[in-house]
Computed example of a mutant assay.
Amino acid sequence: MRLRLVPDNTRIDFFRYMRFWLAVSILGILGSFASIAVFGLNYGVDFRGGTLIMAATPEEHDVAEFRGLLTELDVGDVGVTTASDTTGAGRHVVLMRLGVTGEDATNQREVIAQVQAALDQAFPGISYLQVDTVGAKVSDELVLDGVLAVLLSVIGIMFYIWIRFEWQFGLGAAASLLHDAIVVVGLFSLFQMEFDLTIVAAVLTVLGFSINDTVVVFDRVREVLRKYKRMPLVEVLNLAFNETLSRTVMTVLTTMLALLAILIFGGPTVRGFSVAVILGIVIGTYSSIYVASAVVLWFGVKRDWGSAKGETGAKRDARV
C-alpha cells in the first residue's frame, strides 16, 4: 500500500491571500537588509580572518578555562565551543577561534606556537587535531567570492529557466532565489549565528533545492496551459500546485529527516550548515508559491504553448 500524506484530489486555494503573503515576503527582505545593516554578520574565521584550533583532551574541562587562558594571551577575539568526538575514543574535543590576523605568516606561526605552548602547560595530554589560519586579505577575497558565487548561480539559473520555459518563468525563478538567499542571510544576521564558507555552501544548496521544486511546478504549469487554454492563469497555477503538492510534501519531509539527524548528531562543525539548509528549505518551498508564481501571475504567460504567436497578456486573469 502506497503512503499518502496528501489526498490525490486537493483543492487548496493557494492564492486566496496572495497580497498578504506578498507583503510578508517584502517585509522579510526589508527586515533582512535592516538586520544586516544594524547587526551585521557574525563572520567566522573564513571571512574575518584568524585561527581555528581543534584540540582534544583526555579529561573534560570547562570552556571557561580555555577562554580565560586565551584571553590572557591577548590573541584578539576569542571563541570557544565544545564538539562531540565521533571516533569513540572518549576524547573531549574543543574548538578555539582566535582573532590572530595579519599578513605576516611568520608572526602568525609564532603566535600559534605560543598558544599551543600555553595550552600544553595548562592541559597536560592535549592533542591538536586541526589548526587553520586565514589572513585578512584572503578573508576579504572569500567574502567577494561568496557573494559572486550566489549571484552567478542565480543568473545562470534564470537563463536556464528562460530557455526551457519563458522569460516570465526565468524572472520568477530569479526573484524566488534572491528572496531565499537574502532571507536566510538575514536570519543568520538577526540571531548572530556564525557565518562562514560552510554557510555559503548551504545557501547554494538551498538555491539548488528551491529551483528543483520551482522547475517541477513550472513544468506542470506548462502541461496545464496546454490542456486548458482558456482557464484563467490563477486557476492554472492553483491546479499545478495542488497536483504537485504530494511530491513537494514528501520531498521536504524526507530531506528534513536527514537534516535533523545532521543537526542533532553532527556536532557544532556542521550545525550551521544544517540550520541554514533547514531554514532555506522552508523558505524556498514558500517562495516557489508566493514569489516565483506571483511574478509569473503578474506578467502573464503564453496561452498557446505550441505557437510562437500565442497570447501573452494574461494579467486580466490575475484577480487576487
Rank of each mutant, 00 (worst) to 15 (best):
V185P: 01
G186D: 06
L187V: 14
F188G: 00
F188P: 00
M193S: 12
F195K: 00
D196F: 08
D196C: 08
L197R: 11
T198V: 12
A201E: 09
A201V: 13
A201S: 14
A201Q: 10
S210A: 06
N212F: 05
N212L: 04
T214C: 03
V216L: 14
V217R: 00
D219G: 15
D219P: 13
R220D: 08
R222M: 11
R222E: 10
E223D: 15
V224D: 11
V224P: 03
L225T: 05
L225E: 05
K227W: 13
Y228W: 09
K229P: 08
E235K: 10
N238S: 10
L239W: 10
T244I: 12
V249D: 15
T251V: 00
A258D: 08
L259A: 09
I262H: 07
P268H: 06
V270W: 11
G272T: 05
V275D: 02
A276L: 13
L279T: 10
L279H: 10
G280M: 12
G284P: 06
T285E: 10
S287P: 05
I289R: 00
Y290D: 02
Y290L: 04
A292L: 12
S293V: 08
G300N: 06
G300Q: 07
V301M: 06
V301Y: 01
D304S: 15
G306S: 14
S307A: 15
T312Y: 14
